[in-house]
Simulated scan of single mutants.
Amino acid sequence: MSVPALAYLLLGSNLGNRAAYLQAARTGLAAAGELVATSGIYETAAWGPADQPAYLNQAVGLRTALAPAALLAHCLATEAAAGRERHERWGSRTLDVDVLLYDNLVIDTLSLTVPHPRLPVRRFALGPLAEIAAALVHPQLRLTIAELLRRCPDSLAVRPWAG
């Protein structure tokens, strides 16, 4: 890609020093472009298996020249550098980096789906994203992030983290 794209990512951690893992993610992602927006950090109940610790989540806007697949590879490498192990779907993790949106593109490949397919039903993603991009329009649903948050059926708690 020659013209930098604007990607929105969600960072999450519920193992170990959660805040340090989010900081490591921001540092790792800065190597892929320029962090142009960063939400506050939110503590959220776990999605999926309920018997796991609460998550810290944060949304970031990244201006990057990486193509979508290369950005995904960079996100996966950032997770691996933080010791991410994949044992159980929606299980506990040191770090999770999800590509929520990439410019206004709609992508559906075996390895990457953008917009993130579960974004409209995840308050823990919509809350932080709305803080930094409330007026952004979902390229398929044609609703703003703020409107998606208002309509979100997810009732799990999402609270600003006091640190």
Score class of each variant (00 low, 15 high):
residue 48 G to P: 00
residue 34 E to S: 14
residue 50 A to V: 12
residue 11 L to Y: 08
residue 19 A to S: 14
residue 37 A to C: 05
residue 44 T to R: 04
residue 46 A to Q: 03
residue 20 A to C: 04
residue 32 A to G: 10
residue 18 R to T: 04
residue 51 D to I: 01
residue 31 A to P: 01
residue 10 L to D: 00
residue 16 G to Q: 06
residue 35 L to H: 04
residue 36 V to I: 13
residue 17 N to C: 13
residue 52 Q to R: 03
residue 49 P to I: 05
residue 48 G to A: 03
residue 40 G to P: 04
residue 24 A to L: 12
residue 9 L to W: 11
residue 20 A to N: 03
residue 28 G to H: 04
residue 8 Y to L: 14
residue 10 L to V: 08
residue 28 G to W: 01
residue 35 L to C: 12
residue 10 L to S: 15
residue 46 A to T: 03
residue 7 A to Q: 10
residue 6 L to T: 15
residue 19 A to P: 01
residue 12 G to K: 07
residue 30 A to Q: 10
residue 38 T to E: 15
residue 49 P to L: 08
residue 21 Y to R: 12
residue 33 G to D: 12
residue 11 L to I: 07
residue 26 R to T: 07
residue 38 T to N: 02
residue 38 T to V: 15
residue 27 T to P: 01
residue 6 L to G: 01
residue 25 A to F: 04
residue 39 S to C: 05
residue 38 T to A: 14
residue 10 L to A: 15
residue 13 S to E: 09
residue 40 G to E: 11
residue 41 I to W: 07
residue 39 S to H: 03
residue 7 A to S: 12
residue 52 Q to C: 03
residue 12 G to E: 08
residue 20 A to H: 11
residue 36 V to N: 02
residue 45 A to G: 05
residue 44 T to P: 06
residue 15 L to H: 02
residue 14 N to H: 03
residue 7 A to H: 07
residue 31 A to M: 06
residue 50 A to H: 05
residue 5 A to W: 10
residue 40 G to L: 08
residue 11 L to K: 08
residue 37 A to M: 00
residue 17 N to F: 06
residue 21 Y to L: 05
residue 43 E to H: 02
residue 35 L to E: 05
residue 15 L to C: 05
residue 28 G to Y: 05
residue 46 A to W: 10
residue 14 N to R: 10
residue 43 E to M: 06
residue 24 A to H: 09
residue 20 A to R: 14
residue 24 A to G: 08
residue 6 L to A: 05
residue 39 S to Q: 12
residue 33 G to L: 12
residue 10 L to W: 00
residue 23 Q to D: 15
residue 51 D to P: 01
residue 31 A to R: 12
residue 26 R to Q: 13
residue 31 A to G: 04
residue 41 I to S: 05
residue 51 D to N: 12
residue 41 I to A: 13
residue 44 T to V: 04
residue 35 L to S: 06
residue 45 A to V: 07
residue 46 A to E: 01
residue 39 S to N: 10
residue 45 A to R: 13
residue 31 A to S: 12
residue 8 Y to D: 06
residue 34 E to Q: 14
residue 18 R to G: 10
residue 41 I to P: 00
residue 50 A to S: 13
residue 31 A to I: 00
residue 12 G to I: 09
residue 16 G to C: 04
residue 27 T to R: 15
residue 40 G to Y: 00
